[in-house]
């Protein structure tokens, strides 16, 4: 693996690990507006995700967000890579 690839992967891994720890817990723009304008109550839960709220069951709560960050980052990286791999034409030498 090229050195620059290692640097980039390490940077992404580091970001994924600390993401939940440094994130602001204030509501985001839409949630804030929904609260201010009084339509938050319309929110409905139609599906229960296994890691809802970026917390991983069985992992101590202090590390749960870190685990969620790493798992999700790996999952998205894997899905996006696999999607590309399925579609790409092999490069001709």
């Amino acid at each position: 693996m090229k050195r620059s690839t290692v640097v980039l992967l390490a940077a992404i891994g580091a970001l994924a690990s600390v993401a939940s720890l440094i994130a602001s817990s204030s509501p985001d723009g839409l949630n804030r507006v929904a609260a201010d304008l009084g339509f938050s109550g319309r929110q409905a839960t139609l599906y229960q995700a296994p890691l809802a709220g970026y917390s991983v069951p069985l992992v101590p709560s202090s590390l749960s967000g870190v685990a969620a960050g790493l798992l999700g980052t790996a999952a998205v990286g894997g899905v996006a890579f696999a999607a590309g791999k399925l579609l790409a034409r092999p490069s001709r030498p």
């Binding site: 970001l15 994924a16 999700g72 999952a75 998205v76 990286g77 996006a80």
Partner: peptide
Amino acid sequence: MLGAFVFA
């Protein structure tokens, strides 16, 4: 790589 970064 970009997908992983955007998620994080």
